[in-house]
Write a protein that binds this DNA or RNA. Structure first.
Lengths: 390, 390
DNA sequence: TTCTTTCATTGACAGGGGAAAATAAGCGAC
DNA sequence: GTCGCTTATTTTCCCCTGTCAATGAAAGAA
């Protein structure tokens, strides 16, 4: 084995080729003619861009399957060959590390997780390395290379530098995670904020496909928000954006652990909801599931807690819609488990708070499994690999 | 005179040329080498792009003025020849129409305004046509052509179509203003939302020069917000964006004419402030100037009204900063006349509400004269002319 | 069978922008 | 004063990308 080696590199270096690849990636099997129309390019350009991608194995032609237009010659479908390569996605949370092995189409092939107890960078890194090792072992069975690893972390992340600027969960500051993880795993590593990673996955493979402006709002332990404006995920100049959780929804609201009062988080954060349900019911519920159960059982106080949470979320979404005029807002996160308890309030508060045409923004709920976050991390790795710098 | 004529067309059709022109436009006289560095292009590309622009007269070389680098050959400065062409900018408000005649550098050469009484599209259009005619007469004296007219209107505007979708002030719906005004004035007309127009002016000539992410917040009759994300002005998919005025700041706040309670507008809108000052002081102030005077005279109730307005504005800015992570927020509008009455509260509320690195966003006040809005409209006309589709 | 329609490919070609070399123009060392 | 160093600008190729127009393919319709 050579002491230095050249990492596999994606052949589509031109704008057109990269654009066509992502178009095919997002819009499934496409005829070349369709791809040209969608990407606004000539058919000739598609033919030329597709050829090296097929030669390199990233795209394949389904010779057997044909689509017949109403009239004219049948078309050949081109699609991304998911089996061509693998990627690893890692999502670090306070208590666990989730990992997935995905193919080039970002379909999850293997999912694994390990508990996380310590929070020092060194300890976390060791757990990540362990998890990656496991996933790499699994990958051996597929006989194709793992081309990258994406890591998603809550907090402020400088994606370009691969540095975690600040993670409240882990209590990290300026940890050069990409570099460290690349050294221990031997893979090209990208690091990004967790909600933004999830947003990339939605943009390419989920409910954001084809939209230039949309938002993802996640409800769970924290309230997060990923924004896509002009087709690009917003990261902010300092690596912070989409901080909807600490937007003050009601200055007279409950105190938040951040020191303010009435943050969205204080109304709709997981722990906060549980605490308030415990308070108003006098029970001793300790987690979300129990709190939801109490509300489902019909306790009016508990229901009210959820109603107020929904109201706050809807108001937050209205703010996003008013400011950015997105086409759609995708609501997701573990908090959706209680969705029936506040769905109506979200919609009402949104409609009441959205101004003018912002009301035309579509609200959509997507109950995404938790591994979806790790999948988002893999999506960022794929993005780096195919150099879709957006 | 021919029955049809060809409108003057800007020669820089390539991305590089357009980029270099806007770079020179924004960053004043520049050496070719500097322009290349700023635009991330080769020096050769600049030379090639600049030549036709100089030939067409849009750029000029200041042969006399030279900059000497510490070492090496002196450089020649290139700048936009403002006197090469004129543009008209029109800002329509409820009671007046403001118009400016600017040069290619968007410097105001003539400012005019006419009162506006009727609000029907036809009547407004007649006033606009009258104002444009006056400005065109003024333009004759300069001996250079007027190449376009930009019109700025508050409300929802479809810039691409040139249609005012909804203007609450004028009570317009789906008025194809660009087409109508183009017919009556004989000029190429662009129509845009007023705050977005102002934002373009700031982006190219004001405090937004060189920034990829910033916001403009205007305080006055209404509270507006223009957003620049990834170097582009955000317009939203339905032509609505930056609607910060009706973001609910405090659900227990005063009622707003929009039907909600505690909108930013209800705290900090001009009319609302005047009404509340009247209320708390028992005086009969009727306009901003009087209200400010009362507060300046030291009336504690009046001061409190301004303090609360500042708090609300600061909270709104914090929300923008949390969501988008801009580098700077430019505060402007007639409301700045009372700035000393709420400057502190704005900053305090912003600092209290901004999360993490969002606090690093810089707040800047820019007392812009009212004609600045019309200048913004002219800037949109220039943008159309030079085809900087952003 | 022939025409029409749509898909795909090819080859010629234009133009944009880069690299490298050439030219220009100062400054300081000698 | 000349030489060499440095930076600015221009020139001269030249690659490369993407479009155009022409061609071929493969249906269904007349």
């Amino acid at each position: 084995m050579p002491s230095t080696f050249r990492a596999e590199v994606f052949p589509a270096r031109t704008p057109a080729a990269s654009q066509i690849f992502t178009t095919v990636l997002s819009h499934g099997p496409l005829t070349r003619a369709d791809a040209a129309r969608r990407a606004g390019l000539s058919a000739a350009a598609v033919t030329k861009a597709v050829r090296p991608l097929i030669e390199a194995g990233y795209l394949v032609e389904d010779a057997d399957v044909e689509t017949r237009p109403v009239l004219g010659r049948p078309a050949n479908l081109v699609r991304v060959d998911g089996g061509r390569a693998l990627f690893i996605g890692i999502k670090i949370t306070g208590g666990e590390i989730f990992g997935v092995l995905t193919d080039l189409c970002c379909r999850v092939r293997v999912a694994r997780d390990v508990p996380l107890t310590a929070r020092a960078p060194k300890a976390v890194l060791a757990s990540v390395a362990e998890l990656v090792r496991e996933l790499l072992t699994e990958a051996d069975g597929f006989g194709v290379p793992v081309l990258g690893c994406g890591i998603a972390v809550a907090g402020e992340v400088d994606r370009a530098e691969g540095v975690v600027r600040y993670s409240p969960f882990l209590d990290w500051r300026d940890v050069p995670l990409a570099e460290l993880a690349a050294m221990t795993t031997g893979l090209p590593v990208t690091v990004d904020n967790d909600v933004r990673a999830l947003t990339v996955a939605e943009q390419w493979f989920g409910a954001g496909v084809g939209l230039s402006d949309f938002a993802v709002v996640t409800v769970g332990a924290g309230i997060g928000c990923g924004l896509v404006v002009h087709g690009r995920v917003v990261a902010g100049v300092h690596g912070v954006a989409g901080e909807i959780g600490h937007v003050v929804v009601d200055p007279a609201g409950p105190p938040c652990h951040c020191g303010r009062r009435g943050c969205l988080q204080a109304f709709a954060g997981d722990a906060e909801i549980v605490a308030r349900v415990r308070e108003v019911t006098g029970t001793s519920v300790t987690d979300s599931a129990e709190a939801v159960a109490v509300a489902h059982a019909g306790h009016p106080g508990a229901r009210e807690v959820y109603a107020r949470a929904g109201e706050a979320i809807g108001r937050g979404i209205a703010t996003v819609a008013n400011l950015l005029g997105p086409e759609r807002v995708i609501i997701s996160g573990e908090g959706l488990a209680a969705y029936d308890l506040f769905a109506e309030q979200i919609r009402e508060a949104f409609t009441a708070g959205a101004f003018g045409s912002a009301t035309r923004c579509e609200l959509l709920t997507r109950p995404l499994p938790f591994e979806e976050w790790a999948r988002g991390a893999a999506a960022t790795a794929i993005r780096s690999f195919i150099r879709a710098d957006q």
